[in-house]
């Protein structure tokens, strides 16, 4: 599902964030990406999500050759992947339901489908009573769950998460990881960047360690 061949990323300021990375994730696989701060975890996720282009090497994600992907085709590609960042990045002037439904609105889904799927996914996240609330009325754990709901509502083939439990207490972090495992059991390919080694080791999945831009 995700193929990286000899991928390097050097930023315009000359910093080498990734150095000759080759990596493969099978469909339905869940892998954790770990390493110290500045090891290149976020850069690797950005390359897979086509947020940044690689300096060298080939990237193929869900049958899309990202090196050949034209800018106008990036939005359609992004609809195949769900992205969760450390900060929930919710729209504060829109309700929880509207935030969760945003990918469906963007994709032009019918109104009734948007409403029913958003309610269903929020129910799964335990947020059925918070649909009409605004993000600032929620706790940080609830906000992160809204962000997860938004990432999975489109039923993406791939879910990329960058430190999704970074701002959560251990109990909420474990709960969030359980949610990810449930999605993975449904066949979603997942790459989760985290430096919480204790939590990662507990879950017994593949662990990819990055150090100074190298595997």
């Amino acid at each position: 599902m995700i193929h990286l061949q000899h991928v390097s990323k050097r930023y315009t300021n000359g910093y080498l964030a990734l150095d000759n990375i080759s990596l493969e994730l099978a469909p339905g696989e869940l892998a954790f990406l770990t390493g110290h701060s500045g090891a290149g975890k976020s850069t690797l996720l950005k390359l897979i999500a086509a947020i940044e282009p690689p300096s060298h090497g080939q990237i193929k994600v869900a049958n899309h050759h990202l090196n050949k992907l034209k800018p106008r085709h990036i939005p359609a590609f992004r609809r195949h992947i769900g992205i969760i960042l450390q900060s929930p990045n919710l729209l504060m002037d829109r309700s929880v339901l509207d935030n969760a439904a945003l990918p469906l609105i963007v994709a032009g889904a019918p109104y009734r489908e948007i409403q029913s799927r958003a309610r269903a996914v929020l129910g799964k996240m335990g947020l059925q009573n918070k649909q009409k609330c605004f993000p600032y009325e929620l706790s940080s754990g609830e906000q992160q769950r809204v962000a997860i709901a938004r990432a999975v509502i489109n039923k993406p083939a791939i879910l990329l998460a960058d430190e999704p439990t970074g701002n959560l207490d251990p109990e909420l972090a474990a709960e969030t990881m359980n949610l990810f495992q449930q999605f993975n059991q449904l066949g979603m390919t997942m790459l989760i960047a985290s430096h919480d080694l204790a939590l990662i080791h507990k879950l017994k999945h593949r662990i990819i360690i990055l150090s100074e831009g190298k595997l």
């Binding site: 999500a49 947020i51 939005p75 359609a76 590609f77 992004r78 609809r79 992205i83 990045n89 729209l91 945003l102 990918p103 963007v106 994709a107 938004r150 489109n154």
Partner: peptide
Amino acid sequence: HKEIEIIKLIGGTNAF
């Protein structure tokens, strides 16, 4: 700006 970045991230087109 933040809203635009989020919409881009979830696959929103420039037209949208």
